[in-house]
């Protein structure tokens, strides 16, 4: 078996890399795949708390690389009944504790056993970024519809290109359909025309994402929530399914207001 190693990156911090990694990983596992997610944000680990596994950590990524434990010892099984594992980052070390070659070797090992190896990349374009991208054959870039995040995403596309990672896919996270309607937020077309890469998912801003993070249960488990549904569809697209992207509609759009009037049970957002 040869799995796919995909890095999830963004350049800018705080746009939702870790959330995307946890949710796409969980989504792929929900689809019946064997998945391992690797947190490479050494010194600032967070994938463990987003997945609710922070209390189970014994060994970490640096332990594996340095040989103080076996690969299997650092893999934490997910709480749910899926074939999903986490390799946490070390919290008390720094990004120079591992090299790109070492991470690549480890992922090659994981690919033998898993369908998907997802790498959560740290923010920035320094050593941590170099480590994370060296190990992957594919890349997903997360951005939000904001000038700073888009500018950084563009830099990342250029850097990935020059390191041989071609045709990265884009997730536009935290879209506010009401602001898009008013013309105060760039939409899919705007972002696509600026960055010129394929969009693989549109995720609406959704309170449930924060609720899910509070509980340590990725929002994709709640498939009826707008963000959860969006992440599950992204996982399906990563998995090769051809699902069209749909427009996000504002909560209080004319149509849903009309639906409310005639007593239909309109959902908060249409699905992307």
């Amino acid at each position: 078996m040869t799995g796919r190693t995909i890095v999830i990156t963004s350049g800018k911090g705080g746009v939702g890399k870790t959330t995307a990694t946890a949710n796409i990983g969980t989504g792929l596992a929900m689809r019946g795949h064997r998945v391992v997610v690797v947190d490479t944000d050494i010194g600032l680990r967070n994938l463990d708390v987003i997945m609710g596994l922070e209390n189970r950590i014994v060994y970490d990524l640096v332990n594996v690389i340095e040989g103080t434990c076996k690969l299997s010892q650092a893999m934490i099984g997910d709480k749910h009944d899926y074939e999903l594992y986490l390799i946490p980052a070390a919290q008390t070390r720094d990004k120079n504790s591992i090299t790109p070659e070492q991470l690549r070797e480890m992922c090659a090992e994981l690919e033998k056993e898993f369908d998907y190896v997802l790498i959560d990349c740290p923010a920035g374009i320094e050593q941590g970024f170099k480590n994370a991208t060296a190990a992957a054959q594919e890349a997903i870039i997360v951005t939000t519809p904001e000038v700073s995040a888009i500018r950084d995403a563009d830099r990342i596309i250029g850097l990935l290109e020059s390191s041989g990672l071609h045709r990265p896919k884009l997730i536009i996270n935290r879209i506010d359909p009401e602001m898009v309607r008013r013309g105060d937020m760039m939409d899919q077309k705007d972002v696509e025309s600026l960055l010129a890469i394929e969009v693989i998912g549109l995720v609406p801003a959704d309170e449930q994402t924060i609720v899910a993070a509070n509980r340590g249960i990725p929002v994709v488990h709640n498939t009826k929530s707008p963000a959860g549904g969006a992440f599950l569809r992204i996982a399906s697209r990563v998995d090769g399914e051809d699902i069209p992207l749909m427009d996000l509609e504002p909560k209080n759009g004319l149509f849903s207001r009309f639906k409310g009037m005639v007593g239909m049970n309109g959902r908060a957002y249409s699905h992307a």
Partner: peptide, 9 residues
């Protein structure tokens, strides 16, 4: 404002 953002970007 989104068009301003696009132009600047």
């Amino acid at each position: 404002s989104k068009d301003t953002a696009k132009q600047r970007l």
